[in-house]
Each structure stands twice: as C-alpha cells, then as structure tokens.
Simulated assay, not measured.
Amino acid sequence: MPAELQFPRSDSRPEASRSTVAGLALATASWCARQGWPVHPLAPGSKAPAANCRGCRMNPHSPRACRCLSAGRWCHGFHAATLDQHRIQQWWGQHPQFGIGVSCGPAGLLVVDIDAHPAQPPTRDRILPGIPIADHVDLTGLANGFHTFAVLAALRGQPSPANDETTLRVRTPSGGMHVWYRVTDNRRWQSSVGSSSGRALAWQVDIRANGSYIIAPGTTTSHGTYTAIGKARTPAPLPTWLAQELQRTGHQPAPHVPAPRPVPPRAQQAVSAASGSGRGQYTLATILAPVEACGQVTEGAGFSDTLNRAAYTLGGLIASGRLPHAESVQALQAAATAARPGQEHRIEQIIRSGLTAGLDKPLRTSGRRP
C-alpha cells in the first residue's frame, strides 16, 4: 500500500514488502483493480505503455485479433488492462519498475487533465471552444489550463474542479493536475485534447475517458512522481454542470443515424398510379430530398424548418390533385423519421402544421412554395 496515497491496505501482503518499490507498485495496481479500474503496465520511467512483444511489433494488427492478450501478456497498451489479481501479481511482481496505467472507459472514469505548459495562448475562439471571447476582454495573465478551466467554471457559476476537495486529484510532474471523476450513468464520454480542431473543452485542458488511459497516482517517471493531493482518494461523481459542458463540446459519440430511407415502394406505386407517369414520383422525391439530407448530420441543418416547408409543399400538391394524400404523407413521415429517429411525436406535429397550411393553398407547379 503506498502510504502517501493512504490506499486501503491489503492484509494478504507482508508488511515488509510495502517498503520496497516492488511492493508499492504492486499494491497500488492491486488496489486500483479492487476499485474496478483495469490496469496495465507502463514502460519504466515513462508515461507510455510497456512495449509490445516482438511478434506484435513486427506484424501490426488489431488488439482484438491479438492472441497475446488471452495469453496474459501486456501488448497493445490499455487494451490489455485487467482486473485479474493473479495477472497483476505476475506483471508487477516480475517487473517492479513498471508504472501503472488505468484504462478509463472500462473503469467508468472521466479524468480532467489540466496542463500548465508555458506556451502562447491560441486565438480567442480556441481558448474556450464554442464560447466567444470579445476583443475588449483583457486576457493578460492567462497562461495555462488552470486559468482557462477556472474561467469556464466561473462563467457557469461553479468553482474550478482544480479546487474540488471531494474528489481524487493528482499533481503531475510537470505541474499540472489530473482531476478524477466517476461516471454514474451509461454515457460513453470521449477523450479529447484541449483546443483541438475536433472536440475540445478548453485550452490546455484534456479529457481522458473512453479510448484512453490515465496514470495512477504513485507512479514515478523520469520527470517525477504523480502525487495525490488533499484528503480524497476516490473519484466523486461527475458534476452535472461539467457533464453539460462536455456534451456541448462534443465529448459524446454521435448517435447512429440510419441512412435516409428511400420512398416506400407502396408510396411509389401510388404516386405513379395517380400521375399516370413517373412525374409524380419524381416530384415527391424532390420534396423529400432536403429532409433526407438532414439525416447526414446529427443535429442542426434546420431540420424543423426543412420538414415544415416540405409538408407545406406536399399539402399544396395534394390539394391540387397532383399527389395522393395518404401515401405521400407516409413517405414524408418515413423520410423524417429516418433523419431524426426517436422524434416521431415532434415530426408528426411539424408535418400536421405544414400540411394543414399547404392544403389551403393548392399548387399548380411542383416543388415550389408560393
């Protein structure tokens, strides 16, 4: 048990072993696993995972297809993370110089990695992505992730997580901080690097969650030791306001969006029969196309307005006898539901409103709103 971490003591281990480096590393890895945090070895003195075996290095392949993992080897970094105490005993017992990595996703952890690297701040639009900072705001003194995270928290009327004494916080050798939180729902938060072109929370503030690992406190690298600070030794639940910010900044995977559904065969047949040619089918497809295009993005795209216009146009064409009523509405509902699954009630309301208005204004030309 690393005394400086005050982790629960494993009574099965001789007290003498706790004074050795091997005992400290092994006890920490074992304790992490008992918390439900899968662990994997880090290369001695490094933040990087222990090297793959020669076979894996010579023949790159997916971790899922690797036999090394089932054989109890540590190839492929956090993909090899385990809760198996026997394997942990083997890894750190035979290699006491290994550091300890914790696989965040399977552990149900989200860790905020606050950096304190001396660097020139980026442009204002990348300091707090998604939150504009006006030119008149004085940014003098803003130098690292502690500052940007504090600004974000202050904007939300919250204290900075860097000062959250209710959760495990770890000081890094570079002067930064890891703030550990526990995910209490089933959301699979995604990792990020602060101010990146993709998802980002704040400049010099990274997120370690699914698809990444965090260094366990007590691990020593060539730059120093990761040291727990304060009294808390376990992660607190992820604060609601921070979860909202993570959701705002794209740290949740995009939900699966089905490909836009084609016009149902029944509707196609009805349209063709009503028009006596393929013109009616072409007209309907033209109306549905903008709605189907909204399905290529998970949000935005003016979906409500697009659907309302399509329903309005459809109503006008139905009123003029150019399209059949029931089959055409069915086709629009199918296209809208494919674009925004799970929003059937909202879709029905929008279609009903637009259709009612369109039926009062018969159209003599297709695809245009008067």
Rank of each mutant, 00 (worst) to 15 (best):
residue 3 A to E: 13
residue 8 P to S: 09
residue 9 R to S: 10
residue 9 R to P: 02
residue 10 S to A: 11
residue 16 A to T: 14
residue 20 T to M: 07
residue 26 L to G: 06
residue 35 Q to E: 06
residue 45 G to V: 04
residue 45 G to N: 03
residue 50 A to H: 00
residue 60 P to L: 01
residue 67 R to A: 15
residue 74 W to E: 05
residue 79 H to L: 00
residue 85 Q to H: 05
residue 87 R to G: 07
residue 88 I to V: 10
residue 98 F to D: 01
residue 100 I to S: 04
residue 106 P to N: 14
residue 111 V to I: 13
residue 113 D to G: 13
residue 113 D to A: 12
residue 114 I to P: 11
residue 131 I to H: 12
residue 140 T to E: 12
residue 149 F to G: 05
residue 165 E to A: 14
residue 167 T to I: 03
residue 173 P to V: 04
residue 174 S to N: 06
residue 175 G to P: 02
residue 182 R to F: 05
residue 191 S to H: 04
residue 194 G to S: 04
residue 206 D to M: 05
residue 223 H to P: 06
residue 230 G to I: 04
residue 235 P to W: 03
residue 237 P to A: 05
residue 241 W to V: 15
residue 242 L to Y: 02
residue 256 H to L: 15
residue 258 P to L: 04
residue 261 R to D: 07
residue 270 A to C: 09
residue 282 Y to S: 07
residue 286 T to S: 13
residue 288 L to P: 07
residue 292 E to S: 15
residue 296 Q to D: 12
residue 296 Q to P: 02
residue 297 V to S: 13
residue 298 T to G: 10
residue 303 F to A: 11
residue 309 R to W: 05
residue 311 A to L: 00
residue 315 G to K: 02
residue 318 I to G: 07
residue 320 S to T: 08
residue 323 L to Y: 09
residue 326 A to P: 08
residue 327 E to H: 09
residue 328 S to P: 06
residue 336 A to K: 02
residue 344 E to W: 03
residue 348 E to N: 07
residue 356 T to Y: 14
residue 358 G to D: 12
residue 360 D to E: 15
residue 365 T to E: 15
